[in-house]
Amino acid sequence: MDVWIYSALTLVYLILVIHMTVDLTRRKQWITYFTFQLIVSLSLAYDNGIIAAGNTIGEGERLIVLSSLRFWLHAFATPLLILVSYQILRSSGTTLAKNSITNAAAWLITIGLVIYQIVAFTLSEVKNLTPIEEYGVLRYMAEGHAGPPIMVIIVGFILLFVGLIVFIKRKGIWMFVGTTLLFVGQLINLQVESGALTNVCELILMLSIWKTTTFVWRINRR
Rank of each mutant, 00 (worst) to 15 (best):
G58R: 03
D47W: 09
I57P: 00
L69W: 08
Q37C: 10
R62T: 13
W72G: 05
T35S: 12
F36T: 04
R70E: 05
T32M: 08
I31S: 12
W30Y: 12
L24C: 15
R27Y: 14
I31P: 07
E59L: 05
W72Q: 04
F71D: 00
T35G: 08
R70V: 02
F71N: 02
S68Y: 04
S67T: 13
I31F: 09
G49T: 04
I39A: 13
R62A: 11
K28V: 15
R70C: 00
T32V: 03
I64F: 10
F71L: 02
A52T: 03
T32Y: 06
G60V: 05
S41A: 12
A52E: 03
G58I: 04
L63I: 02
F36W: 09
T56Y: 09
L69S: 07
R26L: 13
T25C: 14
S41V: 09
T35Y: 10
G49D: 01
Y46L: 04
R26Q: 13
G60I: 06
L24R: 14
R70I: 02
E59T: 07
A45T: 07
I51M: 04
G54W: 02
I50N: 01
R26D: 14
W30L: 14
N55Y: 11
I50V: 12
T35R: 09
L24P: 10
I64G: 00
A45W: 09
A53L: 11
I39T: 13
R27E: 14
I50L: 05
R26E: 14
I51T: 15
W30D: 09
K28E: 14
L63H: 01
I51S: 09
F34I: 10
R70D: 00
F71Y: 13
I31L: 12
Q37Y: 08
I31N: 12
I50Q: 00
R62P: 06
S67D: 05
I51P: 11
E61S: 15
T56R: 01
R70F: 02
I31Y: 11
G49S: 06
T25D: 15
F36M: 12
G54M: 02
T56W: 10
T25R: 15
E61V: 13
R62I: 09
S41Q: 09
T35E: 09
L69G: 01
W30K: 10
I50K: 00
A52G: 04
Y46C: 01
T32C: 10
F71Q: 03
T56L: 11
L63N: 00
V40W: 02
L44V: 05
S41H: 08
I51E: 08
V40L: 07
F71V: 07
F71W: 11
G60Q: 05
F71E: 06
I51R: 08
W72L: 00
I39C: 10
